[in-house]
Amino acid sequence: MHRYCLQWHRIVQGRVNQEWWENVLAPLEQLELAATNDSEEMELQTRALTEPLPTNQQAYKDHHLYALEKWLHKNQVLHPKGPVLGFCKGHPVYPRSCVQTLQSRHGWLLEGLQVRENESPAKVVTRPKRTFNSQSNESNSNGDGLQPTTELYGKWQLEPLQLPHAVNGIVPKNERGQVDVWSEKCLPPGTVHLKLPRLFHVAKRLGIDYAPAMIGFDYRSGRCVPLFDGIVVCDEFKNAILEAYDEEEEQRQAAERKQEEAQALSRWYQLLCSIATRQRLKDSYNARSAAPAPERPAKIDNHMKKSTNDSKATSHPSTPQADRRPNYSLPGHGHEHEFPEEDQSFDEEAFVRTKRCPCGFSIQVEEL
């Protein structure tokens, strides 16, 4: 594209992802290279690398060749700081290859690197107060209202991560009895990280030394708590632990299936018993409702007739025939009927209990 554009910095920011675009054009570039001579390719590369310095400061933002120190990101620094290729409105212009990306101690640990001793941070930046940092010595915050800070280091200050080796089947642990597995590169040499549930029971049953794998931190209810995933054991015990784990899982799954079957049988038994009880009650009530009504005892009928005649005799003679009703109360205001037990009778065939008041009033109640 440099063949048609002499000011590449003006359009590079609006292009798609460069890595994806190169993968798409890779087959076509092979054909183009076969059809063009080497001199033309060298000319294009030379033009791309010798693009003139932009005169606008805004053009140096994420420029692929040049950089201004004022446009560096928070985690970037110039190292080495030079050479100076020119100036743009008083600001020195540096090659983009001088820009280095910095990370904290914890960030470099994820890549299996550690900061050398007696190295001063290349840059100290402020960070949000609620952001958790696993390295306490990276952050400096006090109670005078100042914001916490994070120390950043560059690649020139690093060395490969040096961890103690596993010896005689013993996993090297930290002061908390754990292994901080920020990434697979953080494992002590001679160990392996096994990410399976309930695996520490197997290692404990076999008598194999292990260490819980702490993989990070999480915020819960305003507190920062560690997260664990699996265990760390020595390489020579990996196959033995996995085989024992498979056998134990088969036994556990068989026990769970047996328990589920027993629960299913118990629930079916309860359901069938409920159905049988419901049907028995239904049949019993249907048979009782279909039985003929028993004849009323003559003694009760005579008593009811007597009570009716007595009530007619006490009614007022001037009351019209349509308004004549039996009076079941004794003379006197506020009489309440009482039914003593000695004046009650029960018909066992009809399940009818007759209750009588001393005033002569009687009622019949069906009892089940």
Rank of each mutant, 00 (worst) to 15 (best):
Q270S: 14
E338V: 12
V77G: 02
W108Q: 06
A122N: 01
V84T: 06
R15D: 14
F339R: 04
L102V: 03
E51Y: 07
I363Y: 10
S307G: 12
E341W: 15
K195S: 06
K74C: 08
L53F: 10
E19V: 10
V171H: 01
I11G: 02
G107M: 03
V352S: 03
E248G: 02
Q7T: 01
R280Q: 15
G332K: 11
E367N: 12
T126Y: 11
K123E: 03
A34P: 00
D283Y: 12
L72I: 09
V352E: 10
Q251A: 06
L25F: 15
Q18H: 15
N286W: 10
G145H: 05
F87G: 05
K70P: 03
P148K: 04
K129S: 15
L109Y: 00
Y60D: 01
A287N: 05
C98Y: 06
L163I: 08
F132Y: 10
R288N: 08
S307R: 10
G334W: 11
D62H: 08
P331I: 14
R220G: 02
Q100P: 04
F87M: 05
Q45W: 08
N174H: 14
S311L: 04
Q100D: 11
V77A: 07
N174L: 07
L242I: 09
E295C: 04
V16S: 13
H2C: 03
S284Y: 08
R198N: 11
N118K: 13
P188N: 02
Q259Y: 06
M1A: 09
K258D: 08
E247H: 08
R325K: 15
R325Y: 14
M214H: 01
F87P: 02
L109S: 01
Q270D: 14
S39A: 11
K204F: 08
A244S: 01
P197M: 05
H63W: 10
N239I: 14
E348N: 10
P320N: 13
A298V: 12
D343H: 09
K155R: 07
P189T: 07
D144I: 09
L242C: 06
P297K: 03
G230H: 01
A48C: 13
P340F: 03
N327V: 05
A240M: 00
S318Y: 14
Y94S: 01
S289C: 15
D283L: 07
E336M: 12
R47E: 04
S39L: 10
Y269K: 05
Q259M: 06
R278L: 14
L330E: 13
N23R: 14
E236W: 15
K81Q: 12
K355V: 07
T354M: 01
L44I: 04
E184M: 13
K70L: 10
D229Q: 02
Y153S: 00
S221V: 09
E43C: 10
R353L: 04
G216S: 09
C357A: 13
Q259G: 04
D347W: 08
P52C: 11
C234D: 05
L194Q: 00
N142K: 07
P331E: 15
K355S: 08
C234A: 09
